[in-house]
Structures are given as structure tokens and as C-alpha cells.
């Protein structure tokens, strides 16, 4: 989806369009709760809000997951695991950043351990503002994401693949190295 000038030309083939229709209607979340926002997910999945209506359900391994929810502040150590897991997910994958901590560091803006801007390290398709958005906001985000997928705009994973070097540099700049060699992981 390249936007030469401001006219967005849709380059996807017919198959891609159908695939995106399918991808939007059956998204599997990765069951990996990184921050305080994770507690918002159970209510959105159970009987009151019922995410399953949109075909969205939790999956145990990154290999099967489509969406990666970064729910809240990301400490340096968790970011290393997030990047490692992000690279494990099969290709059309989308990332949603929950809460202000992923946008600009939130209340931990001045901490020596938390990062201030998520999309510096992994491509983020959608941010949800709020210091832990309520299920309604999450639903708003999911429907927005489904819209973007159908229109072909949610291609963070393409961006990650295209300028992989840039992302890697950012990661190394603030993390030192992604895969750690130390006493506990000999």
C-alpha cells in the first residue's frame, strides 16, 4: 500500500484482497500479557463484551497468532522478549499498543528502565490512548484494525521487513543486544 502523493493506490492482487477479508474476520491474539492492560482483555472476551463475535480469540503460541497486543509499559527486559516473540509470528501480523505508556512512556516517562516510544522498535499499526483503555475502547480499536486490514492499510509487518535495518539499529541503540548471554541463559 504505497501512497504516492496523497492518492492511495491499492496494489493488492485479487487473492490478497480476499485473504485480507478473511484475515480481518478471524484474528487470533497472542496470549502474552506484557503490562497492566492485560487485565482489560478477559472482560472483553467473556460474556458481557464477547470478542469472539468478531472471530478474535486467544492463541497460546506466537506461531499461530495474528495480533500482538502490547498492553501497557514496556521495560527494557520485556522489550527484548517482545521483539524475539514478534519475529516468531507468521507474516501478516499486526501490533496494537495499549495505553499511553506505549505512545510516549506515560507515567514512566522518566524511568531508566521503560522505553518511551514503542513504534521506534517494532511497527505498531494502532495505538489506543488512555491509561488502560476500557473494553469499549478496545472494541473501537479492533473494529478500526479490521477496517484497516480490509483496506490494506495495516501493513506494519511489511514496513518491518522493508526497513529491517532501521528497526534493528534502534533496538541495538537502546537495548545493547536483543538476545542476552548471561548467567541465567548460558
Amino acid at each position: 500500500m504505497s501512497n504516492r502523493g496523497n492518492v492511495k493506490i491499492d496494489e493488492r492482487t485479487v487473492w490478497e484482497k480476499i485473504a485480507d477479508q478473511l484475515r480481518s474476520r478471524s484474528m487470533w491474539m497472542l496470549h502474552y500479557c506484557t503490562g497492566c492492560g492485560a487485565v482489560e482483555l478477559p472482560p472483553s472476551m467473556t460474556s458481557r463484551f464477547d470478542l469472539e463475535r468478531f472471530g478474535i480469540g486467544p492463541m497460546a503460541t506466537p506461531r499461530q497468532a495474528d495480533i500482538f497486543l502490547i498492553t501497557g509499559y514496556l521495560s527494557v527486559k520485556t522489550l527484548r522478549r517482545v521483539i524475539y516473540t514478534y519475529e516468531k509470528m507468521p507474516d501478516p501480523k499486526y501490533v496494537i499498543g495499549f495505553g499511553s505508556c506505549t505512545i510516549n512512556g506515560g507515567i514512566y516517562y522518566d524511568s531508566y528502565a521503560t522505553i518511551n516510544r514503542l513504534d521506534y522498535y517494532i511497527p505498531v499499526d494502532l495505538y489506543i490512548a488512555g491509561c488502560m483503555p476500557r473494553p469499549e475502547a478496545i472494541f473501537e480499536a479492533f473494529t478500526k484494525l479490521m477496517e484497516m486490514i480490509r483496506k490494506g492499510e495495516a501493513n506494519g509487518w511489511k514496513r518491518y521487513k522493508e526497513n529491517y535495518e532501521w528497526y534493528k539499529q534502534n533496538q541495538l541503540r537502546s537495548l545493547g543486544e536483543v538476545i542476552i548471554h548471561d548467567e541465567f541463559h548460558e
Binding site: 487473492w15 485473504a19 478473511l22 484475515r23 474476520r25 478471524s26 467473556t46 460474556s47 458481557r48 464477547d50 469472539e52 463475535r53 468478531f54 472471530g55 499461530q64 495474528d66 507468521p90 507474516d91 501478516p92
Partner: peptide, 19 residues
């Protein structure tokens, strides 16, 4: 809760085949 449409499994299977 309402649960997914009856054709949800078709979508799931076909979606995974396109990845």
C-alpha cells in the same frame, strides 16, 4: 454470550491457509 457466526470455522481454516 453470542459466539461467532456459524461459518467462522471456514474463515479460520482459509485464513490460516493464506498465511
Amino acid at each position: 454470550r453470542y459466539g461467532p457466526p456459524w461459518y467462522q470455522n471456514f474463515i479460520d481454516v482459509l485464513k490460516t491457509l493464506t498465511k
